[in-house]
Write a protein that binds this DNA or RNA. Structure first.
Length: 420
RNA sequence: GGAGAGGUGGCUGAGUGGUCGAAAGCAGCGGUUUGCUAAACCGUCGUAGGGCCUUAAAGCUCUACCGGGGGUUCGAAUCCCCCCCUCUCCGCCA
């Protein structure tokens, strides 16, 4: 969502940059709808002004004891006209609102122009893929063999794209959650929150999942509640319709939640293993920042997420997403990709974004500094996706005999040195 | 889930269907006084969207908003209906 006057005044430049996403902004349609809407509003408002004046006139006449029946009939007639005009105006306004809500964010000037993943730019790389004296296996072979991952029973009790963790597999997931939360709260200065795992539609609108991406969500039948697709939604919306103290920013929060995604339209991608599930666990980082320092905060937040991978000794690379690969709400996004020997590839494990004021404007999250009030900038990033971290550990630390060595940093949490 | 009470500006809190965008107090902001602080006094102080005027800001003006949505009326914070939320009591429950 944009500032309207900014949008109007820079329409052509905005349309040109949005074309890089690619998003086709119909400039003429916008101009026409905007003009029609304003004309309808003006007409209706002028009539309302007249009605208000006449009504007060009636009040005066009545006080003076005059008969106002005729005037009342006249004003009633005005009211009927207003109703018709308002209907038209609200239809135009709704169409305009929908048009605006569907326009993606403007990519930051530092974002490379490109069409898809192949145009993303690697900015750094850490660690080396571990050398194996044997053919490394994928986690969907290692997990079931170790008795810590169970796809069959998950399919029985729920369905496809769900999994059951057993024994040390379950404990590894829990250890990772605690480890990540501890590092972020104790080392990186985040405050922990535990939000509801369901949110209402207003929250989803605030962070941009609605109205366009409802198909990716699980909705609770007969309610306005949805299972959260990421902690970003409840945590960013904590301050929806609130005004924060600008001088107290940034506010840095971290939250563990499960995430639920219907993954509609993703059939055929990552069908094996637990890379893409309907439910997965995640530790999320969220920041509310002053506008002028939000890009510094994005760098810090990205480093905070990377630090988890470093401490776990997992090789990764950081890429900046090109215009064509970014989510609609984001102005700039870094993806962290962890090395997975089982797939012989780097795979996304975290996505760190600066939304600038795009979400804040939709969700009405302001900051006040002295007399001035303006929208804050919101950021978030996975710190990290727990399930994919689980996969990375199992695949990178696998031994020839099928056992998995536990990374040093995790041993206090897991209580064992080897999963076998 | 049942019964009752309530939801008004940053906060507290008034508000007989007509001059109420809304009293008053607090907080905030500007100023006067004061050696400084405090106090006192004066002024100012909501948000959004139109229109006029501007390069722009400012300014002037209109409309809407008193939890949300409908309705009654010439006119609704005030009356009616539905929904949401909070509090108290009861029931159920991890």
């Amino acid at each position: 969502m944009y500032d309207l006057s900014f949008f109007r005044n820079n329409l052509d430049a905005i349309a040109q940059r949005l074309a890089d996403r690619p998003f086709l902004l119909d400039v003429e349609a916008f101009r026409k709808l905007d003009a029609d809407r304003r004309a309808a509003l003006t007409e209706s408002e002028q009539l309302k002004a007249r009605r208000n004046a006449e009504s007060q006139e009636i009040a005066k006449l009545r006080k003076a004891g005059a008969d106002t029946a005729e005037k009342q009939a006249e004003v009633r007639h005005i009211g009927e006209k207003i109703a018709a005009l308002d209907q038209n105006a609200s239809e135009l306004d709704e169409a305009f609102r929908q048009l605006m809500a569907g326009v993606p964010n403007l990519p930051h000037e530092s974002v490379p122009t490109g069409r898809g993943p192949e145009d993303n730019v690697e900015v750094r790389r850490w660690g080396n893929p571990p050398p194996f004296s044997f053919e490394p296996k994928a986690h969907w072979d290692l997990g079931p063999a170790l008795g810590i991952l169970d796809f069959e029973r998950a399919a029985k009790i729920t369905g496809a794209r769900f999994v059951v963790y057993w024994d040390l597999g379950a404990k590894l997931e829990r250890a990772l959650i605690n480890f990540m939360l501890d590092v972020h709260t104790k080392q990186h200065g985040y405050k922990e929150v535990l939000p509801p795992f369901m949110v209402n539609s207003a929250s989803l609108y605030g962070t941009g999942q609605l109205p366009k991406f409802g198909a990716d969500l699980f909705k609770i039948e007969g309610t306005d509640y949805y299972l959260i697709p990421t902690a970003e939604v409840p945590v960013t919306n904590l301050y929806r319709e609130e005004t924060l103290d600008m001088d107290a920013l940034p506010v840095s929060l971290c939250a563990y939640t499960p995430c639920f995604r219907s993954e509609a339209g993703s059939y055929g991608r990552d069908v094996r293993g637990i890379i893409r599930q309907h439910q997965f666990q995640k530790v999320e980082l969220v920041k509310f920042s002053k506008p002028e320092s939000s890009y510094d905060e994005l760098e810090k937040l990205t480093r905070d997420a990377e630090d988890i991978l470093v401490r776990l000794g997992l090789p990764y690379r950081t890429v900046v997403l090109c215009t064509g690969d970014m989510s609609a709400s984001s102005a700039k996004t870094y993806d962290l990709e962890v090395w997975l020997p089982g797939q012989n590839a780097y795979k996304e494990i975290s996505s760190c974004s600066n939304f600038e004021a795009y979400q804040a404007r939709r969700a009405s999250i302001r900051g006040r500094s002295g007399k001035k009030t303006e929208f804050v900038h919101t950021l978030n990033g996975s710190g990290l996706a727990v399930g994919r971290t689980w996969v990375a550990i199992v695949e990178n630390y696998q031994q020839a005999d099928g056992s998995v060595v536990v990374p040093e940093a995790l041993r206090p949490y897991l209580g064992v040195e080897v999963i076998c």
